[in-house]
Amino acid sequence: MSNGLIGVAVIDILLFLFLVLTAIAITRLRNLFAVVMLAGVFSLLSAALFVTLDAMDVAFTEAAVGAGISTVLLLGTLALTVRDEKPVTHSAFLPLLICTIAGATLIYGTLDMPPFGAADNPVQTHVAPDYLERTPVEIGIPNTVAAVLASYRGFDTLGEVVVVFTAAIAVLLLLGGGGRSRRHDDVSDERKKD
């Protein structure tokens, strides 16, 4: 048990160090193209961390959506806006203070958490064994995650589809409206008058 835990810990901490380095580089870089590329790297590294945590389905969704679609969307935004961030003018003291206090509070909160990886944690003892036992009988597929997603909690997935649909409509209304270019001209005309 302990040896297995240390084995997991070594890979975990290595991947985590890479993640933190990427996040710090994102904080410091001012070239937004580099920031977007590093955000893709961040997603890919977190997908690797998901694999070590036994979440295969989450890992390949994160790799496809986080490192793929999200990077494409960010690059599209850069093409329509600017490529460089302006230098930060105000001091970083207050944000740093807020993050330190919030982080310390959260770490204090985790002290009561059940030990990582133990089989008798509360989260493992209620519905999870039930799903694992009943999936082959009731649904008949080996992948429990897919069975829960599409069958047992199908309404959750329906809600998710509604959210994605709403977001798609909102994006289309914001960007694809026929009046968009005209309104833009109005604004620049006003500016010229000023």
């Binding site: 389905d57 989450v58 799903y131 429990t144 995650v145 829960v148 997603l149 959750d156 798609a168």
Partner: peptide, 24 residues
């Protein structure tokens, strides 16, 4: 436990939808 995996799958997809809206 498969249950957190299912929740996070949903959260990732909802996350990309909100990101797209923010970028728009």
């Amino acid at each position: 436990n498969p249950l957190p995996h299912v929740l996070i799958l949903t959260a990732i997809v909802v996350g990309i939808a909100t990101t797209a809206l923010a970028l728009a």
